[in-house]
Computed example of a mutant assay.
Amino acid sequence: MRKPSPVIDVARRTLQIEAAALTNLIDTIDARFEASVTAIYACEGRVIVTGIGKTALVGKKIVATLNSTGTPATFLHAADAIHGDIGMVQPNDIVLAISRSGETAELKMLALLTRQLGNPLIAMVSRPDCSLGQSADYLLLAPFDREADPNELAPTTSTTLQMALGDAVATSLLALRGFSPEDFARYHPGGSLGKQMYLRVSDLYPHNQQPVVRPSTSLQETVLEMTAKCLGATAVLEEGSDRLAGIVTDGDLRRLLSSTTNLVRVTAAKMMTATPKTVHKDTLAIRALATLRQHSITQLPVVGDEGEYLGFLHLHDLVREGLV
């Protein structure tokens, strides 16, 4: 029988303590929370988030989340603030100060300076009766019974709650602003999430060659066109037109060779897939990917507003962009 592991026991106990504290945090979301979020929403400047020690690190994460969801925010270290950097706080800004005890000397001094400047102050603290909480205009409460480490000293439960409460503020603001997936994409244009919202087929297919044959094109010429353009397929356009009659893929060639011995008179028309799946040039790339997956294919002919053939979108294009 396996002996109990103190490592596993401590790890599980840590998560149990923090999970219980997070569950209890739900009950603190009340009128005070709503007032704090409403004040930030009404703010015409930035949210100046401040803290010291571990809460400074939490503050930086909250700033990043706020900025990425449409609420302008910046971080101000509490120690730097009382040594000159308080000058970065402008008249229209609102200050969010994070502290476990609410009694840290630097944050108490910063609260005094903030009030002298006339800026609204939100305190994220564990107790409403602490000095920082008493001096604040708004309260975000993150109460907890104990830290999760065995000695009940290291900031663990408290910072977990602060981080979660910051997420709750950011997502509440997101809902108030009507922040859409398209808005999110504008703030994350370089990531795969952003690309899902803005990258379109028209951004990808022009990089590929445009293989074309006609229905009367011979088997040999069709194979040469597919080989030269390196896409594993070619469009078959109607005679004298730029509209698709069908496509010929590597799979079509294999099926032809397995079922026919007389290849002399074979033309593109005899081996093509008529009325193939297509994609409009303005379709989101992520939707084109869904079509490829649904039909277990690797390329799609791209068409324009009048149904004209423009080129091919290949699965590799989507892989290259990190969508797969």
Rank of each mutant, 00 (worst) to 15 (best):
Q90V: 02
P91K: 12
N92R: 14
N92I: 00
D93R: 04
D93A: 06
I94T: 05
I94D: 06
V95T: 03
L96N: 11
L96K: 10
L96V: 11
L96I: 13
L96T: 10
A97C: 11
A97H: 09
A97M: 13
A97T: 11
I98Y: 01
S99H: 09
S99I: 10
S99V: 09
R100M: 04
S101Q: 05
S101R: 04
S101K: 05
S101T: 14
S101N: 08
G102H: 04
G102T: 04
G102W: 04
E103R: 10
E103W: 10
E103A: 08
E103V: 11
E103M: 08
T104V: 14
T104A: 15
T104M: 14
A105K: 12
A105N: 05
E106N: 09
E106H: 06
L107S: 06
L107T: 08
L107A: 02
L107F: 03
K108G: 03
M109L: 13
L110N: 08
L110Q: 07
A111V: 09
L112C: 11
L112Q: 15
L112S: 15
L112K: 15
L113R: 12
T114L: 12
T114V: 15
T114S: 14
T114W: 10
T114M: 11
R115F: 09
R115E: 14
Q116Y: 03
Q116A: 12
Q116T: 09
Q116V: 11
L117G: 12
L117N: 10
G118P: 01
G118F: 03
N119T: 13
P120G: 07
P120K: 14
P120Y: 12
L121S: 08
L121G: 06
L121Y: 10
I122Q: 12
I122V: 14
I122P: 14
I122G: 14
A123W: 04
A123G: 05
A123H: 02
A123Y: 03
M124N: 08
M124S: 06
V125R: 08
V125D: 03
V125A: 05
V125L: 08
V125C: 13
V125G: 07
S126I: 09
S126M: 03
R127K: 13
P128R: 13
D129H: 09
D129A: 03
D129V: 04
D129E: 14
C130H: 03
C130E: 02
C130N: 07
C130M: 05
C130T: 13
S131K: 04
L132M: 01
L132E: 01
G133S: 02
Q134Y: 00
Q134H: 03
Q134R: 15
S135P: 01
S135T: 15
A136I: 01
A136D: 00
D137L: 10
D137A: 02
